[in-house]
Design a protein around this nucleic acid. Structure first.
Lengths: 187, 187
DNA sequence: GCGAATGGAGAACGATCGTTCCCCCGCTGC
DNA sequence: GCAGCGGGGGAACGATCGTTCTCCATTCGC
């Protein structure tokens, strides 16, 4: 196995395990077993568990940003529909078996108080989502506060979908987002 | 120190530490030091750390439900204003120094995947908030979906306030809630 | 005043975890 | 074919954690 695939398998295995059980409840040995990569190589690629956690979150951060942009670009062609398309993306995501909430929200809750790195990544990730909404609301000539409100809806939906184990919050949030969009920037 | 105050000090110390650092990062010895209650008494009152975690969450659950009801009862006198008063409560809470998000959201993220008890308490707590909103929206003759949307706003505000370290999401969410309330049940 | 019970301080124990080390296999260059 | 070496399996190490135990002082009923 070459370095590239070893790193990929480690990141994928760690991400899955962290999502299922949280970060601290997952031992390095479990990651080694799930990935099939030896401890020696693991520590060559990621010199500590903190480095691995950081890399997992960073990779997920980029993937989510891309997925949201792609979702908006391919399925929606106006700022209005692009803003709403985020909630369709959430609905698909929530329907994943084993979905247990947003990794950034969960990891911040677990480690945000003791790990500034984790807190920074979570903050950056959430600001990127807000920024995406802001691009759409700016294009609509709506006030910036609307973007904040859409971000609040999206994050609230993630939390409740995770805790209740249901995809329904995505459609509820989308309906609410439509009402807010119409009120702030009527088509 | 009698049993009652020992239990109270333990619950308060544990709650503070869990809020600051998460559950798994806090050792029983830290709780003993912070509370001034010996380990022997601690294990007499709570036979395991899981029992203590459960008791802390249960106590907080009751306190929050009471606080929301009290906030609505004393500062608002219609279903419309009682629904909005929740967001004022959130604003006060977010402004607490050291606020780091909702204990139920954080603990669910940390342990919801490995502890059914924690998952159950978080679910119950969030359903209680939704229920409170539902009582107000029912009285307004608004559809049940509105209560879900208000709950999504409240939880999204908690998450973003915790991650960003700002109380602003409370006022953004309140503005959004007003728009949704007006759209669904005009006064 | 005395024996028994209670509770405090903290050592001790067993388990687990992150990390490192050791030993050996299999490949590579010549 | 062989010396050298990178990598795998897994034991080992040191730290930490949840939990229990030991020792001792204090208190309370009589």
């Amino acid at each position: 196995m070459d370095t590239e695939t070893a790193e990929l398998r480690l990141l994928e295995a760690a991400e899955t395990l962290f999502d299922e059980r949280g970060v601290q409840a997952v031992g390095m040995d479990a990651i080694r077993t799930a990935s099939g990569v030896s401890l020696k190589r693991l520590y060559q690629l990621f010199p500590s568990k903190d480095h691995l956690v950081w890399a997992v979150l960073k990779r997920r951060d980029g993937a989510v940003r891309e997925a949201i942009a792609a979702h908006g670009a391919t399925r929606a062609d106006t700022p209005y529909t692009r803003a709403l398309a985020v909630f369709d993306y959430l609905g698909d995501w929530f329907a994943d078996p084993g979905f247990r909430g947003c990794a950034f929200i969960n990891t911040f809750g677990e480690m945000g108080g003791i790990s500034p790195d984790v807190a920074d990544i979570a903050r950056g990730h959430k600001q990127a989502l807000r920024q995406y909404f802001a691009e759409q609301t700016d294009a609509l000539g709506a006030p910036r506060e609307l973007a904040d409100q859409l971000a609040i809806l999206a994050n609230g939906a993630m939390v409740l979908a995770g805790i209740e184990g249901s995809a329904e919050p995505a459609v509820r949030a989308k309906d609410a987002a439509r009402v807010l969009l119409d009120a702030a920037a009527p088509r």
